[in-house]
């Protein structure tokens, strides 16, 4: 078993509602990431994948957000119990994050170079000139032409793909051990997406960084992931090695999701459609949360909640019928 870099144990991130209830955005989620590994978190919008990432970075607004339990162990140390100062020494330094919309993540009134160099000035106490030199080197590495000139430009002068490269450069400045990427290519065109994915793979190899990659695109998952976690309604419903999961998806939701997406390499007469929508985070039904929309639903499913169980070595499923012929 390779060394665990990050281990999330029974994490619960809830948000207080005005009526006194809780929206259970992340509800009892556990997973781990080994050194140099890529873990993909997949799911539809509102299933809690971004909230899981933001919890790791501790970027949840509190209140209304609150950690209701669990641990986030980074090198065995619980991030949730650290002081603000200790946290900032890890955040942006040993764990970095890339966001979906680079335009909102970059400061529009600061020059690109200053924003990137700032990371080194802050975390490694480097002087400004040296930091700027490093910034230029890193921009060249992520494939930005005319890096010496571009450091003096502002984010609005860049295209979407270039901005995402700048974000990657900024995230890699301190050589992080873990990089969290939240839908980094969703806003990009396919040819640009291919460029950025390619870049992320090269950077990962060069810096031996572990990667948590959040996406809703199964094609991207298959291309990037070593391991996959499928989320639904704030919970993990299936997890395992990428190859295993694509060859033998066991949870009805994973199966339905794979059948509902048109893929370029497959011909489907009719797309499978999952009836209904994801339940709201404040109104989860009793029992299995997918029961309402599940074609294998059994009266039992509406009463009792299944546990995440190991069906075959390394393949976990949260369903009563998983692996059973019921599910075929």
């Amino acid at each position: 078993m390779p060394e665990k870099l990050l281990e999330v144990k029974n994490l619960k991130t809830y948000f207080a509602l005005e009526d006194g209830g809780w929206a259970k955005a992340v509800d009892d989620v556990s997973f781990s990431v080994a050194k140099g590994e890529t873990l993909c978190i997949v799911g539809e919008s509102g299933c809690g994948k971004s909230m899981t990432a933001l919890s790791i970075m501790d970027l949840i607004a509190k209140p209304p957000g609150k950690y209701m339990g669990g641990q986030i162990l980074f090198h065995g140390k619980d991030l949730l119990t650290l002081s603000e100062k200790e946290k900032s020494s890890i955040r942006g330094n040993r764990i970095a994050m890339i966001f979906q919309e680079p335009m909102t993540a970059l400061n529009p009134v600061k020059k690109i170079g200053i924003q990137i160099a700032e990371v080194l000035q802050l975390h490694e106490h480097m002087d400004k000139r040296k930091a700027m030199e490093q910034a230029i080197l890193m921009l060249k590495k992520v494939g930005i032409p005319r890096a010496e000139k571009i450091v003096h430009e502002y984010p609005h002068q860049f295209s979407g793909g270039m901005r995402q490269r700048v974000m990657i450069a900024m995230a890699m400045m301190c050589n992080p051990e873990l990089l969290i990427a939240d839908e980094p290519t969703t806003a990009l065109d396919v040819t640009i997406q291919a460029q950025v994915l390619d870049l992320m793979r090269t950077m990962k190899k060069e810096f031996h960084t572990a990667l948590i990659f959040i996406t809703h695109d199964f094609g991207v998952v298959s291309e990037m992931a070593d391991n996959v976690v499928v989320m639904y309604a704030g919970q993990i419903i299936e997890s395992g090695q990428a190859d295993m999961l694509f060859e033998r998806p066991l949870h009805p939701y994973t199966r339905a999701l794979l059948a509902s997406v048109p893929f370029i390499d497959q011909d489907k007469e009719v797309l499978h459609s999952i009836p209904g929508t994801v339940p709201e985070a404040s109104k989860y039904p009793e029992g299995c949360r997918f029961a309402e929309r599940c074609d294998k639903c059994h009266p039992e499913c509406r009463k009792k909640e299944p546990k995440l169980q190991e069906q075959e070595p390394g393949h976990f499923v949260k369903c009563f019928w998983a692996g059973d012929e019921y599910c075929q």
């Binding site: 199964f218 094609g219 694509f246 893929f263």
Partner: peptide, 8 residues
């Protein structure tokens, strides 16, 4: 066409 990620 080559840029689209595929599952298989």
């Amino acid at each position: 066409l080559s840029a689209v990620p595929v599952v298989d």
